[in-house]
C-alpha cells in the first residue's frame, strides 16, 4: 500500500474532522488511513471547540494564518448546525479558501444545494452500508493525494 502525506510547499496539511459521533470519527479515520493518508487528523466533537481552533477565541481567523488545513464537516452537530460553521469559515478572510468537505448522513437535495451555494468544496454522503461507507472514505482519502491545498494567508 502506498503511504503518503498531503502537503503544501513542503508543509504537511492538517485534517480537521468535525464529527460529534466518536464511532463515526474512528471509522472515518481508519478508512482514511487505509487509503494511505498519513496526515495528522484533529477530531472535534462540537462546533464551538472546532471554531476555537479554526478561527481563534476571538473568531478573527488570524490564528489560522500560515496553516495548511482541510476540513471534514458533519452537518448534524449537537451545539450548532454544520452549515453555521461552513458560513463562518467561508465568510472569514483567512479561512475562506480553506477546502471544506461535507461528510454527513443527510442526502437531502436542499441541504446539498445549500452547502455548495455557501462554498462547500465537496459533499459526500455517508452510506449506511458499511462496505459502501468504507469505500467512499477510502476513495475520498485517495482523492486527497491529488488535491492542492492552499496555505492560509
Amino acid at each position: 500500500m502506498r503511504v503518503f502525506t498531503v502537503s503544501t510547499n513542503g508543509a504537511p496539511v492538517t485534517i480537521i474532522m468535525i464529527e460529534d459521533d466518536d464511532g463515526h470519527a474512528r471509522l472515518i479515520e481508519r478508512n482514511i488511513r487505509r487509503a494511505g493518508v498519513c496526515n495528522e487528523i484533529i477530531p472535534f466533537i462540537s462546533g464551538e471547540s472546532a471554531l476555537d481552533y479554526l478561527l481563534g477565541a476571538d473568531r478573527s481567523g488570524r490564528v489560522a494564518v500560515g496553516r495548511q488545513l482541510l476540513v471534514l464537516l458533519d452537518l448534524n452537530l449537537p451545539d450548532m448546525s454544520g452549515i453555521d460553521i461552513l458560513v463562518k469559515l467561508k465568510g472569514n478572510v483567512h479561512t475562506g479558501r480553506c477546502p471544506v468537505i461535507i461528510l454527513t448522513t443527510t442526502d437531502d437535495q436542499n441541504d446539498i444545494q445549500r452547502c455548495y451555494d455557501l462554498g462547500a468544496n465537496v459533499y459526500v454522503t455517508k452510506p449506511v452500508n458499511y462496505e459502501s461507507f468504507s469505500n467512499a472514505i477510502i476513495q475520498l482519502g485517495l482523492a486527497l493525494a491529488i488535491m492542492k491545498i492552499p496555505e492560509i494567508g
Partner: peptide, 17 residues
C-alpha cells in the same frame, strides 16, 4: 429515523471492522 441511522452506522461499521 435519521438519529437511529447514526448509531446503526457505527454498529454496522464496527461489526465489519
Amino acid at each position: 429515523t435519521h438519529d437511529l441511522r447514526a448509531p446503526l452506522v457505527n454498529i454496522m461499521g464496527f461489526a465489519s471492522e
